[in-house]
């Protein structure tokens, strides 16, 4: 509202004995709520009685505030949602980092072995992802499962938390052993996406276990026996891994409905 109330109106409004009709009073009050200038005029126009009453109320309010509890300091609580996750994942993530460290050391001692870092990279995020979304490991799963936020979004948020530790660890390990960075990180992301995509059908935990075992039997074991890096991890395969990652991420995205409820297998 741009037109202010006339001083004469304000004087009549401030005078308790005046004859203003209710509708006018209401429209004045609506204006006063938004206009500090007119409020100041009302305050200036009040009688001594009203001033004393207001002073008494102000003193009472001040007193009650002083007697009440101290206001809580403004907190940043956006960090809270991840606190459980961080504590819970610490042992798993430190184990993953330790295993990668051992792979780097072993590589230094035995350079003839096929790259252990490259062999371990796809399965490195799996323990963390499995823990991040499982009703066995999340104590509040039943509460969370009934909230609108439950679903793929939370799973992705928790997976991202896992990857922020695993990806740098892999990057360091690959640079120490001279393995191609793309052939370390792309399979890692592809397996993460595969876990989520498969998890939509059989549960994330089971998907992580299944994919880990399949990788160990199909690729790691033959590589260790033949002492040669398998074809899937040869330099030319980066593009295939990148495409696979995109494809699996797409599949996971279309299955978001399957994460809305924690059915018995999740």
């Amino acid at each position: 509202m741009t037109t202010h109330i006339s001083p004469a109106m304000i004087a009549r409004y401030a005078d308790r004995g005046s004859d203003l009709d209710e509708v006018t009073v209401w429209s004045i009050e609506v204006h006063l709520e938004d206009c500090a200038d007119c409020r100041a005029l009302v305050a200036a126009g009040t009688t001594g009685d009203t001033g004393a009453l207001l002073a008494r109320i102000a003193a009472g309010v001040d007193e009650a505030i002083a007697a009440g509890p101290v206001p809580a300091p403004r907190r940043r609580w956006s960090a809270v949602p991840n606190r459980w996750l961080v504590w819970h994942l610490v042992p798993w993530l430190s184990m993953t980092v330790a295993v990668l460290g051992c792979a780097v050391l072993l590589q230094a001692v035995q350079p003839s072995l096929p790259s252990l870092v490259a062999l371990l990279a796809p399965v490195a995020p799996l323990p963390g992802v499995a823990i991040a979304w499982s009703r066995r490991t999340d104590p509040a799963w039943e509460l969370i499962a009934s909230t609108p936020a439950a679903g793929l979004a939370i799973l992705l948020r928790r997976t991202a938390a896992v990857l922020t530790v695993v990806v740098p660890a892999l990057a360091v390990a690959s640079s120490r052993t001279g393995v191609s960075l793309a052939l370390t990180l792309l399979p890692c992301l592809a397996f993460t996406a595969a876990t989520i995509a498969l998890g939509a059908y059989i549960g994330v935990r089971l998907a992580a276990v299944g994919l880990g075992i399949a990788w160990a039997l199909a690729v790691v074991l033959p590589a260790v026996l033949t002492a040669e890096l398998p074809a899937v991890l040869q330099p030319g395969s980066s593009l295939a891994w990148a495409l696979l990652t995109l494809l699996l991420a797409g599949v996971a995205a279309t299955q978001s409905d399957n994460f809305r409820r924690l059915s018995s297998h999740h």
């Binding site: 809270v80 606190r83 459980w84 104590p139 509040a140 509460l143 909230t147 936020a149 439950a150």
Partner: peptide, 18 residues
């Protein structure tokens, strides 16, 4: 179930956020 390290306020705020 609940997260034992959360305070009551953090727990209720976390649920409100969810």
């Amino acid at each position: 179930g609940f997260y034992p390290r959360f305070t009551v306020r953090e727990f209720v705020e976390y649920m409100a956020w969810l």
